[in-house]
Design a binder for these strands. Structure first.
Lengths: 191, 191
DNA sequence: CGATTTTTTGAATCATATCAACGTACGTGG
DNA sequence: CCACGTACGTTGATATGATTCAAAAAATCG
């Protein structure tokens, strides 16, 4: 399981041969059952979760008491609330396993120590954070530049296997639509 | 001007006493006139710009040939296209000065060298990237959880001085609305 | 001052939400 | 392993937030 993570890191920056052994000291392997919570809104977020196998979501409750999903994470993605993780303030997000999930967990209190031990890890996190930032900005472009129907059809075409893994109402939430509306888009296609 | 930047970095991580001198070797000070382009869509992005004084925007042209603003940057913010900067692919974004602007420019080819010289700089970039990521995700929440009118009123209340510095049609674009609609919201308030 | 850019106004239209009711599937305990 | 209950998906009618287009008014700039 550690090797999945180091393999992923090596796509971004070289690591010494003993990186697996070093890293093993700093992370904890954990599994979560479907629907289990990794983080609850209102609590401090104190870890960053790398998904080895499975699928999670992070979401927030809006005033209207509906869930808004801001992020999915599948294999080889990290999921956390960076704001709470760094500011030490309660999180506004909840993180939940959608499938049974295996994670490599990097706890906050050991993170800086890890970065001091092997600066390549910090480089890796810098790079993936910048990528995730670019993707998040693209997503905003995408929301503003396309209709709901276009967003759904594009997402469906781009990530067909992923769409299979997620209930439709969660996809609706991620795309900023109602489940009813997605249902109507689908009905239109199948005429 | 360098001292503005090191002062900002020290809010996130300690720096050695001679940090100004070291950094001066790696960055270039540049000024841009109002409406001047820092980056044009279709070109490679090869620098990251720290705004010492002034105001810039990054935007994209949608199919409908309208500009979508994805980011403003004022004093003490960086602006770039991280995707193009890292992937070495042409940028989909343009970056433009809205006011006369003074920047500290970190060119791509010297960035990694800087990080190797003083790893605290890399830490700083990791932290601000994570913050910007958290902010970008919050923005998506905000778009989905509120009506256009709520977004405008909240933005106006939160950043009154900033609203003064930006033409309304750019604010409209940033909030995902038409200028006409913002105008109508304002008319309603002033009855 | 004239020319351009930005903002306003109104009418018509469109995309998507809301609500309520019904149909379907699926997993959990008996 | 079946039946039931809950969770999920669908459908239709109606409501609404926001856009579009066109034109006029106001502000800004050289």
């Amino acid at each position: 399981m550690i090797s999945e993570l180091t393999a992923h890191i090596r796509k971004f920056t070289p690591l010494p041969a003993d990186a697996d052994a070093i890293l093993a000291d700093y992370i904890e392997l954990r599994t979560f059952r479907k629907k289990e919570m990794l983080l609850r809104a209102g609590h401090l977020c104190n870890a960053n979760y790398f998904i080895v196998k499975g699928l999670c979501r992070s979401f927030q409750l809006s005033e209207k008491d509906t869930e808004i999903i801001n992020h999915f994470a599948i294999e080889n993605w990290w999921i956390t609330d960076y704001f709470s993780l760094e500011s030490r303030k309660p999180s506004e997000f909840s993180i939940q396993a959608i499938e049974d999930t295996q994670c490599a967990v990097l706890y906050r209190e050991r993170q800086d120590e890890l970065f001091d031990t092997l600066p390549q890890f910090e480089r890796y996190f810098r790079i993936i954070s910048q990528r995730a930032l670019a993707a998040a900005l693209q997503r905003v472009m995408y929301i503003f530049g396309n209709t709901g129907e276009e967003r759904y059809e594009h997402f469906r075409a781009s990530f067909p296997e992923f769409v299979q893994r997620v209930p439709q109402y969660m996809l609706a939430s991620y795309l900023g639509l109602t489940p009813e509306f997605i249902s109507k888009i689908r009905a239109k296609r199948n005429v």
